[in-house]
Design a protein around this nucleic acid. Sequence first.
DNA 1: TCTTGACTCAAACGTTCGTTTGAAACTAGT
DNA 2: ACTAGTTTCAAACGAACGTTTGAGTCAAGA
Lengths: 211, 211
Amino acid sequence: MSQPDTKQRILDAAERLFATDGFHATSMRMITGQAAVNLAAINYHFGSKEELLAAVIDRRLVPLNAERNRLLEQELESARRQARPPSVRQLVRAMVAPTVALRGQGEGPEHFITLVGRILADPQGIGRDLFLERMGPFISRLFEAMRQALPHLDPGLLFWRLHFSIGALSHVMRCHDRHLRLPMPFDPSLPPEELIETLLDFIEAGLEAKP
Amino acid sequence: MSQPDTKQRILDAAERLFATDGFHATSMRMITGQAAVNLAAINYHFGSKEELLAAVIDRRLVPLNAERNRLLEQELESARRQARPPSVRQLVRAMVAPTVALRGQGEGPEHFITLVGRILADPQGIGRDLFLERMGPFISRLFEAMRQALPHLDPGLLFWRLHFSIGALSHVMRCHDRHLRLPMPFDPSLPPEELIETLLDFIEAGLEAKP
DNA sequence: TCTTGACTCAAACGTTCGTTTGAAACTAGT
DNA sequence: ACTAGTTTCAAACGAACGTTTGAGTCAAGA
């Protein structure tokens, strides 16, 4: 390949622009302009604008879900060894930690976070089916593991509380910095490690609420 | 006016299309086609496509925030009369109840919910500034009231937990029905009243978690 | 009846969109 | 040095975009 990084430069520029401006508001000329490649390179390397979006999503989501599954299986295995039910906090951590860790991994993952927020908000969008297809297996396994961790909880109630938990996570991911730019008399910023624990405190208490 | 409902028909069609397809993916010809009005009617009545979006948002958000503020002031006044701190649950209810109540109020409000989800996911979108401008006063007042309700809680921690709460709410609003269309061995659907209480249980426990 | 203002309409404006094309440039195997 | 295969390039394609225009329609006041 004469310029082996053409595909990567397109992926980086598309990730950034899809996140900041949205899929439909981003033109292929904007992408190829920022990537400093020819306009036809997208269709040559990816086929179409939609297939480019799929490639942008897959590049980060596949390894992310692999890590989430690894942490979940690790806790299930640890619980099995010790003949105890899996820990709610550790199960939630399997979902939360790799996600929050995306922050502080550079500009690319930050843009990816924003892009995922857009995809979740799009009820019939292009990337949504792909995203849910990638997420489904983990969510199913997390739900089953959570039923072992909270056997007394009604499954329907557990479903909704997991739903709320995912919402809290995705919302805090979506708003990196100044989402609610209110004049605050203090600085609410937290390092990622503390943010994880703060979020785990909140979700764990909500999942284990009494009624 | 010869056809006095032209503006309403445009607003209804735009609300539906902006929600399902997104602002940039919706053309003015799609809107005027579904509204059965002339293409130029949008520019005549609203000025531009962006001003139409602002009108769509304002139509529902202004009365919604009025109701939220009413409930919040009602609880503050009740607490003042009884010389007690405001109730966490009642304060959260002021934010949650009018929002969840939008479900079951017809097709229009349901589309509006989806549209708000899109606006929140758009970091520099057209409707975002307008939306935050409308929401800001209520959020600020809610935060101050919550500080009275939870005086022992660090303000920075309260900020984050309110952030998580808003996330749980907006996520559950965004996913009316089959957001996670996993093969569930049960029916997780709930009537709005029960959904409100289920969400309040979750948020209240999270806000009052110990550390 | 004439006039005025609000509204609707078909048609066109210039621009930008995603995609395609065919030739040129480059790399590597023989 | 020649060839085959891959990648880049400028240019153009038809289609769709948001907006504007100017004539036409209608209801109501003078």
